[in-house]
Design a protein around this nucleic acid. Sequence first.
DNA 1: ACCTGAACACCGTTCAAGT
DNA 2: ACCTGAACACCGTTCAAGT
Lengths: 219, 219
Amino acid sequence: MPAPPAQPARRGRGRPTRPVLTADGITAEAVRLLEERGQDGLTMAALARRLGVAPSALYNHVATKADVLRAVQDDVNRGIDCSGFADLPWDEALARWAHSYRDAYARHPALVPVMAVTPVDSAPHTVAMYERVCAGLLAGGWPPHLVADVVVAVESFVLGSALDTQAPADIFDPGRLPAPALRAATAARPGGDTARAAFALGLDALLAGLRALRAGAPG
Amino acid sequence: MPAPPAQPARRGRGRPTRPVLTADGITAEAVRLLEERGQDGLTMAALARRLGVAPSALYNHVATKADVLRAVQDDVNRGIDCSGFADLPWDEALARWAHSYRDAYARHPALVPVMAVTPVDSAPHTVAMYERVCAGLLAGGWPPHLVADVVVAVESFVLGSALDTQAPADIFDPGRLPAPALRAATAARPGGDTARAAFALGLDALLAGLRALRAGAPG
DNA sequence: ACCTGAACACCGTTCAAGT
DNA sequence: ACCTGAACACCGTTCAAGT
């Protein structure tokens, strides 16, 4: 959190008597901006305006906008629930983690491509998350050489599902094109939160398959 | 394909004697540009330059850049292999489709967010793809009310996996942060194409789970 | 060291003018 | 109808000048 300066800082146009910005304060404001205004709303200019500062001032604390996104991502990962890996069976822990992970990125879909590609190095909360997940899978008897693949597979499904939450409800409407099977399938689909239903079905299937795979391994 | 004009068109600065551009020609060039220069390389200015035209000329044929991306996406979907749904068991067809789908979007990761969110309406190849997939699942005995969820679940995994192919090899390196389980898991991971290994494991698990679910349904 | 303000090289998009 | 070229309202980023 950006500790509010005891005295109102910065008047003139030189160096302020006390720093106005901190890297953490920039990150916190970026998270808020992303939540309120979405992907396109997070610009360096908008971020600076909300911090009461000229855009160029940000560059004293971050190197690039990608830097800001990485910090925001680590902050989002801080909120993902890994608690199950401490005391639940690995599959139940994985289910809890996957749900929490999906929900977090459904709130921040712009971060999905960032998360899929950004090295974990120097992102402390992200490393802590993976550490708990890997420890839980190892404790659950998964052979070490498969653990990373299991994590990546579940994560790929989670991030794809997070993107899917952004799809409009009528995404599968074929318009005036002929598509009887597609029409039948969408017509038979129950109403409600369809993205959540697809996620639940897929996660159940994925976990059932992983259980079967795990049962075939020693340990 | 943009049929090359029989005579060199366009000299002066008024209306050309023959149209220089077509919507299909713009799409074809956009696909090439995206493959050669990647996401950031696909700008309206670069597209216009390669077509020998001023950027504003594009707007006589497409309404927005998002329009171009939608057309590119439908063109990419044209290349996805749905052949299995005609004569293979549904699970084998789904596996073939998923592999082809993942490979196509691994080549065009910038389209992943587009694909996840864009309505299928007026995208003929995309509608044709979903039609074959749904028909195959219905023919395989899936209850109609589950078909769309199965499609979306597999698709979410595929698109997440396509993004994962863009991750650097050392994405899980925790740097100097303490993370023994994460280190053990990454150290035990065999070399080679790790993204493909994770995709194969996840797809196997997902399909095994879907088979079990399908076996519990009538048909 | 850390801010401001001007500047740079871009974006996507609009629109009057030309044929 | 379909092009050009100028223009608009943006981007992210750099940098000299100020304290």
